[in-house]
Design a protein around this nucleic acid. Structure first.
Length: 157
DNA sequence: GTATTGATCTTCT
DNA sequence: GAAGATCAATACA
């Protein structure tokens, strides 16, 4: 899978310019979901992090489909498993995440949080898809994962 | 194969 | 009025 971190003092972060109606969930308790509308048509999902209520979150950019692949295919109308969740907008559509899930706790229905079976190794790379502070190495990809959000990620490996 | 554009919401200038 | 943490369809080489 693939994630990207956004800090309160990060120019690319939605929380950078203070709290708005849209990003309110970002300032809420950690462990919740922050869903926002991107370019008017897509939803993007973030996990809110503990940051003393100043607004920090991790954007889930991509993941490797493991369970419920058939339902993802139905929702996306797509065959290729590699594209089901290869990107923030694709991922939310595949999982059925919408603005209705904004601010919901991740440890309760319809979600489930589980610790990783064992420690996972990650690669830190530069962020993508943003125009400010994109050089920060705050994008994390699971080592060995072949389900990136971009066809050819410019990994710093 | 790469490049450009349309869809259309929230916030910023 | 413009831009953006995007995607998919179309146009071109």
């Amino acid at each position: 899978m693939e994630t990207e971190a956004y800090a309160p003092d990060d120019p690319a972060s939605h929380s950078y310019r203070g709290r708005t109606r849209r990003n309110a969930a970002m300032f809420g308790p950690a462990g919740r979901l922050y869903v926002y509308r991107s370019y008017g048509i897509h939803w993007c999902a973030n996990v809110v992090c503990e940051a003393d209520g100043v607004g920090a979150a991790v954007l889930v950019r991509a993941l490797e489909p493991t369970a419920g692949i058939e339902r993802m295919r139905e929702r996306r109308g797509l065959e290729d498993v590699r594209l089901l969740c290869a990107g923030p907008g694709r991922l939310t559509e595949a999982l059925g995440i919408t603005g209705a899930h904004d601010g919901l706790p991740l440890d309760r229905c319809p979600f489930e949080l589980r610790p990783a079976p064992r420690p996972v190794a990650t690669h830190a790379t530069t962020r993508v898809g943003i125009t400010r502070a994109g050089e920060l190495p705050w994008r994390y990809v699971l080592a060995g994962s072949s389900f990136p959000s971009r066809p050819r990620p410019r990994a710093v490996r």
